[in-house]
Design a binder for these strands. Structure first.
Length: 272
DNA sequence: ACTGGATCCTGACTGC
DNA sequence: TGCAGTCAGGATCCAG
C-alpha cells in the first residue's frame, strides 16, 4: 500500500487535472469500503467545483466550497485520472468521480481497506484528522519532538515512528529504511534512545521519504501514480524485503522479524 | 493510559 | 493442476 510518498505522488499526479473542474457525477460500483460510501455523495458533489487537492498524512483531500472529500488508499488502493472516453472499468475499479470536461478520477482498491468520506465544513476537526502528529517533511518534526514523545513509551522505536499521533506517513517500508539509515535497532525500546540518535532518526525519516517522493514512490506489486505509472524507489530499498541479502553497508545478512505483527528488516551488525 | 492482537478484504505466492 | 496456508504498503477497535 501507499505510504506517504505514494500518496504524495498520487496527489501531484492528479491535482492539475482536477483543480478548477466541476463534478458531473459520481459512479459508485462498490460502496463497501472500510466505511460505506454515503449514498448521497453524488448528489452532494454534482455541479460543485474542486478548489484544491491537498494531502494530510496518508489522506488525500479534495476541497469543495462547502466541505472536503477524504480519500484513504488503504493497503491496495490507487487513484488515477482517466481521459475520455473512459475505458470499461476493470475489477475493483469501485468509484468514478466524473468531471464536466469528461475526465474521470477512478478509484481502484482490491482489498477495500481504503475509504471515501464526505466531510462537511472544517476537515481539520474531523476525528480522523484531529489527533494526527506533525508532517515529517514540515517544521515541527525533529529529533526533539521524537525524544519528547518517546519518554513515556515502553514499546519499540519502530512502533513509535509508525504511530500517526507521533508523526504521520511513516509506514512499514520506510520505518525499516529510516531505522537502517540512522543505524538504530528497530527492537530498541523507544525510551532508551538518546536525543542525539532521535536527531539522526528524524533526519533519516525526512531523507528516505524525500528520496522516495523524488523517485515517484515505491511499487511493490500494484501501486501506480495518478497517471498509471509505477514508482521506482523499490530499486533503492536498503533492507525492506531483502531478508538474507547482504547489508549494503557491511555485508552481513539482513535479518527479518516481526514487530507488532509487521515484518521488520534490519542489519543486526549496523543497527544498535 | 498503554499495548498487543484481531480485524476488515482480495490476490499473489509457496509448498505439498 | 489444485488446494491449503501464508503474507501483504493501514489503522481502527477492543480486551487485558
Amino acid at each position: 500500500m501507499p505510504e506517504l510518498p505514494e500518496v504524495e505522488t498520487t496527489r501531484r499526479g492528479i491535482a492539475a487535472g482536477l483543480v478548477g473542474q466541476r463534478v458531473a457525477g459520481l459512479a459508485v460500483r462498490e460502496p463497501r469500503l472500510r466505511w460505506p460510501i454515503d449514498p448521497e455523495l453524488g448528489r452532494i458533489l454534482r455541479g460543485q467545483p474542486i478548489l484544491g487537492v491537498e494531502r494530510r498524512a496518508k489522506y488525500l483531500l479534495l476541497e469543495f466550497p462547502h466541505g472536503t472529500v477524504l480519500f484513504h488508499l488503504g493497503m491496495s488502493g490507487s487513484l488515477r485520472l482517466v481521459d475520455p472516453p473512459p475505458p470499461a472499468p476493470r475489477p475493483h475499479d469501485h468509484v468514478d468521480l466524473e468531471l464536466a470536461n469528461g475526465t474521470c478520477l477512478r478509484y481502484h482498491d482490491p482489498r477495500r481497506f481504503g475509504c471515501l468520506l464526505w466531510i462537511e465544513g472544517d476537515a481539520g476537526a474531523h476525528p480522523l484528522l484531529r489527533h494526527l502528529g506533525p508532517e515529517p517533511l514540515e517544521a515541527g518534526f525533529d529529533g526533539a519532538h521524537l525524544y519528547r514523545a518517546s519518554r513515556v513509551r515502553r514499546s519499540s522505536v519502530k512502533q513509535l515512528i509508525m504511530d500517526g499521533q507521533v508523526v504521520v506517513g511513516v509506514g512499514n517500508i520506510y520505518a525499516s529504511e529510516a531505522l537502517f539509515l540512522a543505524r538504530v535497532d528497530p527492537r530498541r525500546r523507544a525510551n532508551r534512545v538518546s536525543l542525539a540518535r532521535y536527531g539522526a532518526l528524524a533526519d533519516a525519516v525526512r531523507e528516505v521519504l524525500g528520496l522516495a517522493i523524488a523517485q515517484g514512490g515505491t511499487t511493490l506489486r500494484d501501486y501506480v501514480n495518478g497517471r498509471g505509472v509505477p514508482g521506482y524507489f523499490a530499486q533503492q530499498l536498503s533492507v525492506y524485503g531483502r531478508a538474507g541479502a547482504p547489508c549494503p553497508a557491511c555485508g552481513a545478512p539482513i535479518r527479518q522479524l516481526r514487530i507488532a505483527q509487521r515484518s521488520t528488516f534490519f542489519c543486526a551488525h549496523c543497527q544498535r
